[in-house]
Amino acid sequence: MKRYTLPQSSFLFLLGLVTLAFFWILLPFSGAVFWGVVFSIVFAPLYAQILNAVGNRPNSAALLSLLVIILMVLMPLAMITASLVDQASGVYLMIESGQIDFGRMFQQVINGLPGWAVTLLDRFELTNMASLQAKLTAAAAQISQTTARYAIDFGRNAFDFLVSTTVMLYLLFFLFRDGRTLAARIKRAVPLASRYKKPLFDNFTTVIRATVKGNVLVAMAQGALGGLIFWLLDVPGPLLWAVIMAFLSLLPAVGAAIIWGPVAIYFLVTGSVWQGVVLAAYGVLVIGLVDNLLRPVLVGKDTKLPDYIVLLSTIGGMALFGLNGFVIGPVIAALFIAAWDLFSNADEFHGE
Rank of each mutant, 00 (worst) to 15 (best):
L217W: 09
D341G: 06
A338I: 00
W274R: 10
V263I: 15
A253D: 01
I100P: 04
L192Q: 01
T137M: 13
M168H: 07
L77P: 02
I100G: 03
G322P: 07
L298A: 13
I110Y: 04
G271D: 07
G351M: 02
A257W: 06
V290W: 07
G317N: 10
G329W: 10
F43Q: 12
A338L: 00
V243C: 08
K213N: 14
N324H: 12
D302C: 07
F174W: 15
M129P: 01
M75R: 08
A257N: 03
V38Y: 10
V38C: 12
N324G: 04
N111L: 05
Y266D: 04
L323H: 06
N292G: 09
G98A: 06
L289A: 04
N157Q: 09
L305G: 04
R149M: 10
G325V: 00
I143A: 15
D234S: 15
A246Y: 02
V243E: 05
W260F: 15
A210V: 04
G214H: 05
R185P: 00
L77G: 10
L175N: 09
I337M: 06
I332P: 08
R149A: 15
I152T: 15
K198T: 12
L66D: 09
G226M: 12
L305A: 03
L305V: 01
V91S: 01
I143N: 11
F154K: 04
G237K: 06
